[in-house]
Amino acid sequence: MSASRFPIFDRRFLLTSLATLPLLSASYRLASAQAQPDPLPSWNDGATKTSIRNFVARVTTQGGPDFVPPDKRIATFDNDGTLWIEQPMYVQLAFILDRVKALAPMHPEWKTKQPFAAVLDNDFKALAASGEKGLVELVAVTHAGMTTAEFEKITTDWLATARDHRFKRPYTELVYQPMLELLAYLRANGFRTFIASGGGIEFMRPWTERIYGVSPEQVIGSSIKTRFEIKDGAPTLFRLPDINFIDDKAGKPVGINEHIGRRPIAAFGNSDGDLEMLQWATLGAPGVRFGLIVHHTDAVREYAYDRHSHFGKLDVALDAAAVNKWTVVNMKNDWKRIFAFD
């Protein structure tokens, strides 16, 4: 029997068929992906959304030149202004101000002592003039002098009752829906997602898993010192009025290295405080890297601010984004909605 009478057994036919299999497979994967629900429905179609999906596709395509094993798929996110609101002030600062006012009846001397008098008088100009030294004093009295369990209850109770003055909603509802989708999308593609924030690590840990799906051990933040004690026969960690670590600016790569032990391949931020984290994740390292900056451009649905803002200033990092080819989210144009309740 001649093989030529049965083309399926012809060597040339077989080789040609095998050569087309990757193309057919790629076409099938593309068609399947298009048939799936959009994992980023709150993102408008365009270059920003495409850059995210292209990056994820490149690092997750088995056998591809840019494939990254799941154990190395690390993504770090800033919190304030990147995952939730930071205007007209950082949420943790709002907590500090409320906490000072709650404690004030036990400290009559605060009425004439700065920076406490500025808080009680709602004198934000005087508060700003107190600078970093004043903020450290406020942190010392509002975040220390208690166990870690007691502080967790204080922050949890405050978040349950506090409301943003503009939106009249709990702060935990003022999280960015597109970023929640992005977190879920990355995790669905084998990424581990970490928070690397200048905010207090123990201020964030009680609620990040419920709100973001980020477990406490994957939260990196600023911290004060703690001391192990036996209190009433039970082991406790007591919070001391001394700064331990500031997880901001150049501190972010340090904190990431100490907590994770791996260099991120993707980083997401919104301000100059995130510049070094984005540099650490994307520059001078092998393989495909991804950096993204959320640019607040929507004064109607949220806020518009960048180079001259007191909170979340975006100046040097915005210029660096163009040089380093980081993706910049134009909130007004790239997001269909900002909050889940929109």
Results as ranks from 00 to 15, higher is better:
A140T: 04
A118K: 02
F339M: 00
G312P: 04
R307T: 13
G81P: 05
L183V: 15
D247L: 06
I293R: 03
R262N: 10
W43N: 08
A57D: 13
V288E: 15
L14G: 14
T148N: 02
R169P: 01
P286T: 09
R262F: 10
F290A: 09
V139R: 00
Q87L: 04
Y28H: 14
T155L: 13
T147M: 01
E181G: 01
T208C: 14
N333I: 00
E132N: 06
T142V: 09
V91M: 02
I154G: 00
F6E: 10
I195S: 08
F6H: 13
T76N: 09
P264I: 05
A304T: 05
F268N: 02
L18N: 02
S32Y: 11
W158S: 12
K153R: 13
A340D: 07
T50G: 00
L292M: 15
D232K: 04
W43P: 11
Y212C: 08
R11F: 11
T161W: 07
E229H: 07
G312W: 08
H107D: 07
K336T: 11
D334P: 08
M146W: 01
Y90G: 03
R166S: 08
H107K: 14
I230V: 13
L186P: 01
W84Q: 05
A35H: 01
G63K: 10
T327K: 11
A299E: 13
P105K: 08
K111D: 14
N122V: 00
G64I: 12
N257G: 14
R99W: 01
G198T: 04
A118H: 11
R163N: 05
K252E: 10
A162D: 12
T208W: 12
A19S: 12
A321H: 09
P170T: 10
V288W: 06
H310S: 13
P108A: 12
G198A: 08
F228C: 02
L275M: 07
K133A: 15
I246W: 05
G261V: 06
E202Y: 10
A126P: 01
T112L: 05
F9D: 09
N79A: 14
V136C: 08
L174F: 00
A128R: 14
A340K: 08
N330E: 08
R166P: 00
A250T: 15
H165T: 06
D164R: 00
V328K: 05
F191W: 07
G64Q: 07
W280F: 15
G213M: 07
F124K: 00
I293E: 04
Q62N: 05
T161A: 14
R53C: 13
A285C: 09
K336H: 02
S32N: 10
T297M: 09
T155R: 10
A104F: 02
T16H: 06
L278F: 00
A75D: 07
G273S: 12
K111A: 15
F194I: 12
